[in-house]
Design a protein around this nucleic acid. Structure first.
Lengths: 193, 193
DNA sequence: CTGCTTTCTTAACTTAAGTGAACGAGTTAT
DNA sequence: ATAACTCGTTCACTTAAGTTAAGAAAGCAG
């Protein structure tokens, strides 16, 4: 399982055994059960997550019901806003499936960056890539209809539609569960007619 | 004008005169007229932008009409996706107003990072902050209606509504110009009744 | 296995956004 | 000065999403 992380990092920077050991020393590998809550609305936290196996989601509770805004699966990481702004969290994080994650905080990062500066280079590049990817996703979201967004998701992340409950997918697509259900039947009708 | 940049950077890292000189040496300060096109769909480019004064926008041409997805104003920066993925650009960038920008590319960054490693620290922190901010904005977009998004914009970026044409704002809010116009009168009616 | 809860679907109705067309105000060009 | 164009608004109509409610299907616990 640790090798998943090392392989991922190796795509950005070469990794020596010494560096791998330093990472293992940090004791960042943790397993969580489906439904486990990693961060609850209102809490303060400085933990960031990286998914080695499984799926976690970020959601808000608005007017009493959950709005899921993001899913993170294998080889995707997420640092909640509250880590950077220091305020109580507005969103919650929970496990969609049994998951194995790395859990880290800024002090661990600082330690590693000091010992091995190239880790900071990797994190910069990674942040820049994620930022651009998120811009592209946001642009696509703004410029397409819910139906188109669903079709895009079918193409780009078909796994998500299988492994995640529909009502969570709905808010991820910016609509209500009933609308997603209707939209799906609409698409099927079109393909028949 | 250069001081605007130095002041901005100083919020993240201390800046020596030597470092300021190194930045000026790069010859990154440029002025552009309203309407100037910085990047056109289909082009390849490795230029990133930072707005010292003015306003630029990113837009796509979809089915013949422009969809504006982002505005960048004073002390905001933008690196187009094509810089990182190396493919022809899918979006265009143009000046909404007469603007003064810094224009840089990855080789300039590399040069600066090598001479002054703390610039890389700044860029990492900046990228992480922008990434989080963008997540928050994306989440807010997904979880609210066009009307609510407009009201939020009125609160958080009232300047944009003044300095930018309505038809560009509309796609920024994920709707058509006619819908924005209607939505605005709807809000006025509510405040009267 | 049975009952309970959660999730998904369906339906009828309401509300808002999309579409296509037209008009007027303001701008630019000739 | 006038014609052409851009931009914002309005209108009538269509389409899709929100809302409320009810019921079917699937998963879980006793």
């Amino acid at each position: 399982m640790k090798n998943l992380l090392f392989d991922f990092i190796s795509k950005y920077i070469p990794l020596t055994e010494q560096e791998k050991d330093a990472l293992v020393e940090l004791d960042i590998f943790h397993a969580f059960k489906k439904g486990a809550v990693l961060l609850e609305e209102g809490q303060k936290s400085n933990k960031g997550y990286f998914v080695l196996k499984g799926c976690i989601r970020s959601f808000y509770v608005i007017d009493g019901d959950e709005k899921t805004t993001a899913f993170y699966t294998e080889m995707e990481g997420f640092t909640p806003p509250c880590v950077l702004n220091g305020k109580p969290s507005e969103n919650s994080i929970s496990c969609v499936e049994d998951s194995i994650l790395t859990v880290s905080d800024p002090s661990m990062e600082g330690e590693i960056f000091q010992k091995f500066p190239k880790f900071e280079t990797m994190c910069r590049i990674l942040s820049e890539e994620l930022l651009v990817q998120q811009q592209v996703d946001f642009d696509a979201f703004k410029t397409s209809s819910p139906e188109q967004r669903y079709l895009d998701l079918l193409e780009k992340r078909p796994d998500l539609i299988q492994r995640v409950p529909q009502y969570q997918l709905a808010s991820f697509l910016g609509i209500k569960p009933q609308s997603l259900s209707r939209l799906r039947t609409r698409i099927v009708e079109k393909n028949k007619g």
